[in-house]
C-alpha cells in the first residue's frame, strides 16, 4: 500500500490523464456523474454514489454500431488509449463485473467470439478500474446484502482510501500493481495510516443497516409468478423507467437506424422492460401487456433469472433506484415483501 499526500494527488491524476482516457466524477449543478476529465481539479470530492451510474462509460446511452453509405458499412474506430476510471464506488465496480458477464462472454460458450460484444470489450477489457472506499455510506446503500462492504476493493485494480490528509492506494490486481510501480512521489503507507484506514472501515461497516437474507429468493419469486404480489407491489408504479436508466446493471437496449436515404447510422440505445413497447410485436400482440407483468420482469431479472444464469444477483445495492423513484417504490421493500408474502 502506498501513500500520496492530499496536495500531491493532482499529480497522480495528471499521470493517469496522460496514460489513459480518464473518467471521474464531476459536479454539474446539483448532480454528480462520471465525465471524461481534462483537468485534475474538475473532479468532484464531496460525493458518495454518483447520481448517474458509471455504466455509460463502457455502455453509452446511444452508441453507434456502424455507419452506412450506399450499402458500405464502416465501424467507428475506438480510442487508442485505454480507459481509466477514478472514483468508482465498490457497488459500481461490481456492477461492471456483472455487465461483463453479459457483454464480455456468453454463458453457453464463453470462448465463442460470436457472442462477445466488441463495443463493450474494446473499452472494458483494458480499462484501469480505480475504486474509492466509502467512508460514509448513504442511508440507501445496501451493498452488504450482496456480499459487499464499503471498503471492499477486491474487484478493482486499485483501491483508494481517503484518510483526511492523504490517500492510501492499495493495488488489488496485477494491472493495478504494475501501474502503481510507475507512479512517482509516493511513500509507503505508515502503520498509523493503515490503522486509520482500519478505523474508517469499521466505522463505515457499522453504519450500514442489517443484511436482509436473500437466500431462497429465486424459488420464492418463481413460486409467486402468478400470485397477486406483483399487482400489490406495482400498484403505484408509473412505468417511467427511471430505475432502469439510473441502474448500474440494467443493460437492455434497442437498436435503431438513423439517417436519410442511403446514408446513416445504426445505433444502440438504452431501453427498458418497463416500457410496453419493449415487447410489443408488429402484429399488435404484446406478451407483456400489463404494468405488473413488466415490473415483475424487472425484479425477477434482478433477483431470480440472473442468479439462475450467472450465480449472482443483478443488483449491487447502490440504492440509486430508491433515490430516484418518483413514487417511492423501494427495491429493498420489494425483496422483503416477496420473501414474506402469503398467497
Amino acid at each position: 500500500m502506498i501513500r500520496i499526500k492530499k496536495e500531491n494527488i493532482s499529480g497522480f491524476i495528471e499521470g493517469l490523464m496522460s496514460d489513459y482516457v480518464l473518467f471521474a466524477p464531476v459536479k454539474d449543478g446539483e448532480t454528480v456523474s462520471f465525465r471524461k476529465i481534462e483537468s485534475a481539479d474538475s473532479i468532484a470530492e464531496d460525493y458518495m454514489n454518483t447520481d448517474k451510474s458509471p455504466k455509460d462509460i463502457f455502455f453509452p446511452p446511444a452508441e453507434v454500431l456502424f455507419s452506412f453509405d450506399s450499402g458500405e458499412i464502416t465501424k467507428n474506430e475506438c480510442s487508442e488509449k485505454p480507459f481509466a476510471v477514478w472514483g468508482l464506488r465498490g457497488c459500481d465496480v461490481k456492477s461492471l463485473t456483472l455487465l461483463n458477464m453479459v457483454f464480455g462472454t456468453a454463458r453457453q460458450n464463453p470462448e465463442d467470439e460470436m457472442f462477445q460484444d466488441p463495443y463493450w470489450k474494446e473499452k472494458y477489457d483494458n480499462a484501469l478500474i480505480i475504486q474509492t472506499a466509502c467512508n460514509d455510506p448513504r442511508s440507501t446503500c445496501f451493498c452488504n446484502w450482496f456480499g459487499g462492504s464499503p471498503h471492499d476493493g477486491e474487484k478493482a485494480d486499485i483501491l483508494v482510501i481517503y484518510i483526511g490528509d492523504a490517500y492510501l492506494l492499495d493495488p488489488k490486481s496485477d494491472k493495478g500493481r504494475k501501474y502503481l510501480e510507475t507512479v512517482k512521489n509516493t511513500e509507503p503507507a505508515a502503520k498509523k495510516d493503515i490503522k486509520e484506514a482500519e478505523r474508517l472501515r469499521a466505522e463505515a461497516d457499522s453504519s450500514l443497516s442489517a443484511v436482509f437474507e436473500l437466500d431462497g429468493i429465486v424459488g420464492r419469486m418463481s413460486g409467486l409468478f402468478n400470485s397477486g404480489v406483483w399487482e400489490e407491489i406495482g400498484a403505484k408504479c408509473v412505468n417511467c423507467g427511471a430505475c432502469a436508466f439510473i441502474c448500474p446493471t440494467c443493460h437492455c437496449f434497442d437498436v435503431q437506424d438513423e439517417g436519410k436515404g442511403k446514408k446513416g447510422k445504426r445505433i444502440r440505445i438504452w431501453d427498458t422492460c418497463m416500457f410496453p413497447v419493449f415487447t410489443a410485436e408488429a402484429s399488435g400482440h404484446n406478451p407483456r401487456e400489463l404494468s405488473k407483468d413488466r415490473l415483475r420482469q424487472r425484479f425477477m431479472h434482478k433477483y431470480s433469472y440472473f442468479m439462475e444464469n450467472y450465480g449472482e444477483h443483478l443488483c449491487t445495492g447502490c440504492g440509486r433506484c430508491v433515490v430516484v423513484c418518483p413514487v417511492n417504490l423501494d427495491i429493498r421493500e420489494v425483496a422483503k415483501k416477496v420473501m414474506s408474502y402469503q398467497s
Binding site: V102, F103, A106, R107, Q108, M114, F115, D117, H251, C252, F253, D254, V255, R268, D271, C273, F278, T279, A280, E281, P287, Q297, H301, S304, Y305, E308, N309
Partner: peptide, 18 residues
C-alpha cells in the same frame, strides 16, 4: 417467437424466465 434485436443474447428483449 418474441420481439428481438441483437440475436446474440445481450439486448434482453426476448428474455423469458432465465
Amino acid at each position: 417467437e418474441r420481439r428481438m434485436k441483437c440475436g446474440i443474447g445481450k439486448c434482453g428483449r426476448c428474455n423469458i424466465g432465465s
